[in-house]
C-alpha cells in the first residue's frame, strides 16, 4: 500500500468496492474478450446482488465492458451508451459458493463471435481478482501484464511457453496452472514484469496443443 492508495483513486462514486471495482471487472472482462461484447449476460452475487443497483454496480460493469475506467464521468449513462453501440445486456442474480460477497459472473459474446465466461470479485479499494475463467479456477488481479493460455493438458507445453517468454527477455512474476481434469483442458496464468508484444502473443497461438491465448496489458 502506498500514499496514493490512501489519497485516491479518483473515481466515480459512491463505493470503491461496488462501483470502482465493478468498472474494473467489466474492463478486465472486455480486455480478456479482446473485442466489443455485443452480448453480455451478467449475474450478481451476494452484496453485489442486494445493494448493487443502489451503488450503480450494474452501470459500472457495463461501463467497464465499454472500455471505461473507474474515473469516467460517463459511467452513470453507460446503459444508454451501450445500447447506442448495439450491446445487448441483461442482469440476474446468482448464489455462488465460497466466494467474496462482491462477485459477478459475466457471460460475453464478442462482435466476431468470441465467447468468454468470467467470474471476478471486488476486494475493496477498487482492487479486483478474477477467480474463474471459462469454467476453470484462476486467481489474478489484472494489475500486471497477464497472459492466459488455454491448452490441452499435455506434457511439455508449460516449458514451451516459458522458453518463448525467456527468448523475449520477459520475466515471469507469478505463474499458476489449473486444469479441469487430468488430460483435459488446462489454463496457464502468467503475470509478467514486462509487456509482451503482439507478435509474441500470436506465436503462442501457433503452438500445437494451445487452444486459446488471451493477453491483458
Amino acid at each position: 500500500m502506498n500514499l496514493f492508495d490512501i489519497l485516491g483513486p479518483v473515481m466515480v462514486g459512491p463505493s470503491s468496492s461496488h462501483t470502482a471495482g465493478a468498472v474494473r471487472i467489466g474492463y478486465v472482462a472486455r480486455k480478456l474478450l479482446g473485442e466489443f461484447p455485443k452480448k453480455a449476460e451478467i449475474l450478481l452475487h451476494g452484496s453485489f446482488a442486494t445493494t448493487g443497483t443502489g451503488h450503480g454496480t450494474d452501470k459500472a460493469l457495463i461501463s467497464g465492458l465499454l472500455g471505461m475506467q473507474p474515473d469516467d464521468i460517463r459511467i452513470p449513462q453507460s446503459f444508454e451508451l451501450a445500447r447506442a453501440q448495439g450491446m445487448e445486456f441483461s442482469f440476474g442474480t446468482v448464489a455462488l459458493r465460497d466466494v467474496h460477497p462482491n462477485t459477478a459472473l459475466l457471460r460475453l459474446t464478442g462482435e466476431n463471435g468470441k465467447q468468454l465466461e468470467i467470474t471476478a470479485s471486488s476486494l475493496g479499494g477498487g482492487r479486483i481478482k478474477v477467480i474463474e475463467i471459462d469454467g476453470i479456477r484462476s486467481s489474478f488481479t489484472g494489475e500486471a501484464p497477464t497472459l492466459i493460455v488455454h491448452n490441452l493438458d499435455r506434457p511439455g507445453l508449460v516449458a514451451e511457453v516459458t522458453s518463448l517468454l525467456y527468448n523475449q527477455s520477459i520475466n515471469i512474476a507469478t505463474m499458476q496452472l489449473y486444469r479441469n481434469r487430468r488430460g483435459g483442458t488446462a489454463v496457464m496464468i502468467i503475470e509478467t514484469d514486462q509487456l509482451i508484444n503482439r507478435k509474441a502473443v500470436e506465436a503462442f497461438e501457433k503452438i500445437k496443443g494451445i487452444v486459446k491465448v488471451t493477453y491483458l496489458d
Binding site: V10, G13, S15
Partner: peptide, 21 residues
C-alpha cells in the same frame, strides 16, 4: 452527496469519507 450521486470524487481515504478532507 456528489459521491452518493455517482459524480467523480477523490477517495480520501475512502469514497464514503471523501468529503472530510
Amino acid at each position: 452527496e456528489s459521491n452518493a450521486c455517482m459524480k467523480r470524487i477523490v477517495a480520501a481515504p475512502t469514497a464514503g469519507s471523501c468529503g472530510v478532507l
